[in-house]
């Protein structure tokens, strides 16, 4: 296989991973599902492309501005919709993502539905990997901090965490803003990799794909998200030979995962050097298997 081809797939997986990491904080650690993260990617992508193309900014500041704008938009959306219960929040994000796409379809400044070519090529495997390592480092620290534990408390039992004095709304909003910033940066990376942007790239299918990767990797596991992004982005490429059937298999796989192993690949566990050591000693001592803490999740 061609080396360029493999780096291409890995770069795409890295871009997806960036968005998935953000969504992992929102879905895996705060317990809120979003079907509109492609909308935040679109905002970040178009903003950062505007910065490099129309204002001549360097690449990294443009990416950060893209992430910042996505976070700001998400704070407005969050203030309006985060009070909605369960299903309704999903639906609101779905509506938001589609609305962003349809608005971009009509903005002639960005080329409208025909797309926007001629964005400089800045993204390569090296800077995607570096950005992802920084992103994972920041995310792992957030999750382990007091704020991260508060978010997990909100995921586990919203009412109880409110009673012990956690400002549920505030933590949901922070989680949403951070995840939108990640998605925005991912959008910027994508814009400077493809050198072309089109609203169609950020459809509901893209949002669903991101959510599916998070679930596939395992809710509440950063290493699961990393594995999920690598496997699920490269899988369609490997199955390229049956290109028509790959999405059929993909859809079927999602249903089967939901039915048989809803906890995902990692099931809430992390793959770190210390956890691998524990696992190794346990297997040596032939202890009972790991208890599956995420099984079934919260019952209604």
């Amino acid at each position: 296989m061609d080396l360029n081809y493999i780096t291409g797939i890995l770069t795409l997986a890295g871009i997806n991973l960036m968005a998935v990491l953000g969504l992992s904080l929102l879905t895996g650690f705060t317990g809120m599902f979003s079907f509109g993260h492609a909308g935040f990617m679109a905002i970040g992508g178009y903003t950062s492309a505007m910065m490099t193309v129309k204002f001549g900014l360097p690449f990294i500041p443009a990416l950060l501005i893209g992430g910042l704008v996505a976070a700001l938009v998400s704070s407005v959306i969050g203030k309006l919709t985060l009070n909605l219960k369960g299903d309704y929040f999903c639906i609101a994000t779905l509506g938001f993502g589609e609305a962003i796409r349809l608005i971009l379809d009509n903005v002639q400044y960005f080329g409208g539905a025909r797309g926007w070519p001629g964005i400089p090529h800045h993204t390569n495997l090296l800077n995607v990997v570096i950005i992802n390592i920084v992103a994972i480092f920041i995310l792992a620290n957030i999750v382990r901090s007091k704020h991260g534990r508060n978010m997990i408390a909100v995921r586990e039992e919203e009412l109880a965490s409110q009673i012990v004095g956690i400002n549920v709304f505030r933590y949901k909003l922070i989680s949403l803003m951070i995840s939108a910033a990640y998605a925005g940066i991912a959008g910027g990376l994508m814009a400077h990799y493809m050198t072309f942007l089109q609203p169609k790239m950020f459809s509901l299918t893209k949002s669903t794909e991101l959510t599916i990767i998070v679930i596939f990797g395992g809710l509440g596991s950063i290493s699961g998200s990393v594995l999920g992004a690598l496997v699920l982005t490269s899988l369609p490429e490997i199955l390229r030979a049956f290109s028509n059937w790959r999405l059929v298999i993909y859809g079927l796989a999602v249903v089967i995962i939901m039915i048989t192993r809803p906890s995902g690949l990692m099931g809430g566990y992390e793959l770190t050097p210390s956890s691998m050591k524990t696992l190794y000693t346990r297997m040596k001592n032939k202890n009972k298997g790991l208890p599956n803490q995420m099984e079934g999740g919260k019952t209604i």
Binding site: L252, A253, V254
Partner: peptide
């Protein structure tokens, strides 16, 4: 919902 999304993709 995820299961439904998977079915619809399928």
């Amino acid at each position: 919902i995820i299961s439904a999304m998977g079915t619809s993709i399928f």
